[in-house]
Nucleic acid binder design. Sequence first.
RNA 1: GGCGACGUCGCCAAGUGGCAAGGCAGGGGCCUGCAAAGCCCUUAUCCCCAGUUCGAAUCUGGGCGUCGCCUCCA
Length: 497
Amino acid sequence: MTLRLYNTMSRAKEDFSPREPGRVLMYVCGPTVYNHIHIGNARTFLSFDVVRRYLTWRGFEVSFIQNITDVDDKIIRAANEEGVPPATIAARYTEAFLEAMDRLGILPPTAQPRATETIEPMISMTERLIETGHAYEADGSVYFSVRSFPGYGRLSRRDIDEMRSGARVEVDERKTDPLDFALWKAAKPGEPHWSSPWGEGRPGWHLECSVMSEMELGTPFDIHGGATDLIFPHHENELAQSEAATGRPFVRYWMHGGLLQINAEKMSKSLGNFVLLKDVLEQHPAAVVRLLMLQTHYRSPLDFSEERLTEAASALERLVNMVRLVRWACVRPADGPGAPPDDLAALSQALEATRGRFTAEMDDDFNTAGALAVVFGLVRHANGFLAANESVLDAEGLALLDALQREVTDLLAVFGVTLPGADEEPLPRGVVALAASVAGYAGDDPVEAVNALLAAREEARSLKDWTQADAVRVGLQELGVVIEDTPAGARVSVRGD
RNA sequence: GGCGACGUCGCCAAGUGGCAAGGCAGGGGCCUGCAAAGCCCUUAUCCCCAGUUCGAAUCUGGGCGUCGCCUCCA
């Protein structure tokens, strides 16, 4: 099977073959640390986290590089507004970013260079570009000459001449051509600055990605990722800089994720409709956020809302419940006569087919929504098998169910989705007091307390004392512990939220 | 004005030529003392029109609608 991915450069799905067999070199543009990241940013990082996880799962060794832009106009502006040094802003939001990524379950990059730690190589690349006639100095700033690079506009499919007429390009008389962009900016008073051959200044935004990717990965590297709003001008400019400086192709596959929207509009600071990732994670587990986002293909726009989070939470419950049901079934003695051979064979076959179908979906340009559907299909099959055969299972049936539960867990791990409650959550302390008042329990152990409560409820039920039986269940429910009656007796589980 | 994307069940959404995945919500049934969970059944010919084709949600043309980029943006 071949992995295919959509390449923005060709606007088509292409067979993927990395520069070096078995190894994938990828670079994803990171954040500018001037504020907490919002969920739109998070979506992009999540999409590429899954790309990276899937490639790894598929057997590639993945080098994953992501920059952190910690010197920039927006940081300086935020610093001025707060009256603190830009470095303070950058440090604060760098830390917040790393923490948020960790909480979302994003795997750390192989390397995560900061712009401020890459100044020297950026100066070197600028010098190279001046030497080769692609850049020029003016008033202590250095600009890239767009006209010097014949392929300019290829990625974003723009025509330089058409752009000049309609576009609102920043007027700057120091530029030879309005479309030229800054490689190096002369420092204004009070701004962060570094020494350079052109005086004190700081790097332009586009430069760091060109420099870091070349340093860490070489050229051409395999996958360059970002959201669609970076295609122009950011990636177009990176491409021009890098190829002009190295004389070599820059990137083999350009991948761009769709934008997240709120109420069918782009999320943006100016519209005031942005939602911070950290605030969402206060309300919902990472798995819910991941499930929500992965139910939509990464290139499609995704409309975000509280309702959709709730729906995703329900979907996650379905996954969690399946694992719990299987776990409950597996702790019972395997002494039944066994499930019908046809049922066993069908389930076994479904299990075997799942991985191939999952892989086929993911191989098709990372179709996480299709792959998720495969997983849900297997879950339904397993639930059906269990519902029909729970009371007759033997060792073979239980082994199959266990294998199935493991497969679901493994496949979800490719999405970075771990099931809360797949491992026993601790019982709340309140059960002890409840057991003391309702079941006459005198000890101090939550597990014993719950057992005492269940025993008391069983006794009440056998006497058809429904009031007493329900008192136990309602009491536990208020503590977040749910009782479910199964063929093997009552079970409890701790439900989050 | 230029470039581009999208329009599939109540909501979300996969699906680029061959009988329309999946999730959420709703209805009916089974199970249950009640419940929870689960299972079964149940709701679409794919914005409209016209073409190409044996056959189209999938290709072409036109129309309507929504959104994005063209300026910092994930």
